[in-house]
Design a protein around this nucleic acid. Sequence first.
DNA 1: TCCATTCTCTGACCTTAGTCAGCGAAAACG
DNA 2: CGTTTTCGCTGACTAAGGTCAGAGAATGGA
Lengths: 296, 296
Amino acid sequence: MDDAAQISQVRRFNRTVTERVGVLHDHYLGLDRPIGEARLLWEIGGQGQDVRRLRERLGLDSGYLSRLLRSLEADGLVTVEPQPEDRRVRTVRLTEAGRAEHAVLDGRSDELAGSLLAPLNDAQRARLVAAMAEVDRLLTATTVTLDVVDPDHPDARHCLRSYFTEMRERFETGFDPARSLLPDAGELRAPKGLFLVARLHGEPVACAGLKLPPGSAEIKRMWVAPHARRLGLGRRLLAGLEARAVEHGRGVLRLDTNKVLGDAIALYRSYGFEEVAAFNDEPYAHHWFEKRIGGA
Amino acid sequence: MDDAAQISQVRRFNRTVTERVGVLHDHYLGLDRPIGEARLLWEIGGQGQDVRRLRERLGLDSGYLSRLLRSLEADGLVTVEPQPEDRRVRTVRLTEAGRAEHAVLDGRSDELAGSLLAPLNDAQRARLVAAMAEVDRLLTATTVTLDVVDPDHPDARHCLRSYFTEMRERFETGFDPARSLLPDAGELRAPKGLFLVARLHGEPVACAGLKLPPGSAEIKRMWVAPHARRLGLGRRLLAGLEARAVEHGRGVLRLDTNKVLGDAIALYRSYGFEEVAAFNDEPYAHHWFEKRIGGA
DNA sequence: TCCATTCTCTGACCTTAGTCAGCGAAAACG
DNA sequence: CGTTTTCGCTGACTAAGGTCAGAGAATGGA
């Protein structure tokens, strides 16, 4: 299928979906109140949200948002209170009534989904859901951003904590960071290295570090959050690190890994890594890989 | 995957798509003029449209639509003229300037589609487009309506004309209606039979007739438009005819078909038909099928 | 021929969505 | 400590989207 055919298929999709889903969506959501308010109520959700965060997520003008909140407050659906730590920031929470209304919206959303599936038979339904999952995955993948951050940044720390926890659970021998050949944080920070974090909707969902000792480049601590797998993030991280290693004039990228990380090993191979003899004595490693980079 | 899991997958899809496609869509479309006008301009399209039809398609109030048209007219983008046949109905056509503006919107729509694909690599792109096509097909399928119409109705005649043309092209021996055991139109009209037409966005896209001689029920002239294939319409037509045959107290459904119609034959088998000896001497038939219906 | 219906348009009106400037309180900075 | 910045709020305003009742022309049917 050439580019033009792809474009026109995407356009057909856009049209069908905005008609069938988009229109119904607003229609279902906005039965009793303006969709602006309904969306807001929805976004506040069970645990409450800072006004600032709401403004960001929904992309609303501060004055406009304020007015919407007043309106919801007048209807007794939300309460707005200053945060104890920073009394400029205010937190919105649903009241009992607000929670009830939220549950109604939730139910409508289920109805909408049901109404799309209802006219189909079982086989078609399964195909539709599978295709939707695929579209969802791939469109989501395009919104993930990759940034270089300091390993001490909260998002980086979150990824690293998750990484350690997962290794501890998956390695047959457990995982004790103290026994591993861990780069101290300084080694994953310029000029000795760098650290990449991938974010989805602002939340950190994957990371990878690059150590840059003279004449070499080594990947460390690559991790992808379970709910963000199958988005091609591992590959994007590898590509990101490779590009940066090339920028630093390195001709080889290498890494070590544990035998239980089968998916990762498959990824390394398919990305062009080849297994080599051990180049360090990392106690948790069973395989060592290298890839020539930068056209070297 | 159980029902709840399907529903929640559909909901995730709805959310992702309305965010990524819906929002961008309005954004791209509405750069220079209100989206209401832009949508209208878009819907008028190259050949012009009756006001009535526009109102239906876009679901707009007649007063509101009228005002939008005045506004486009004032900008010199459209002309509105009464239809010659029925001077109450008015037809909207794009002027030269309107056509230019339409082309701009068209380009934007391409851009939008491109922007969804751009961040993906080739393999992902192909997967996304394939999944979109599947979603598109299945969602479209749910909007098809099935109605009993008179075989002389313009939509029925359109289907039958297309059917004859296609048979003429595909049968190895050509197809001469005069030689075939054609039911005359009366046989596919109550009380001797019936005729079903499937419509997509109001356009006829498939048909099938049922002959109801005493004690028997026979399917004739089943056809699905090429662009509406793979939507499960054949199966729906069969189900529709079966249900009506049962209503008329018949216990067996039968049909004859030509050997070149491989897809149709596969459909009949998978729907539960079994091949039987010839029950008529239709010169263009190679296979005869029967299915017990109504729990008989 | 008269009457009912269809189709579009106009005027009056309302709600929702959204922008912008500026203000006061709280926090951060130097 | 004073100054600057951040955060949310209010008032004033605009545009867009949409509803409703009714008028006037054209058509169809009895």
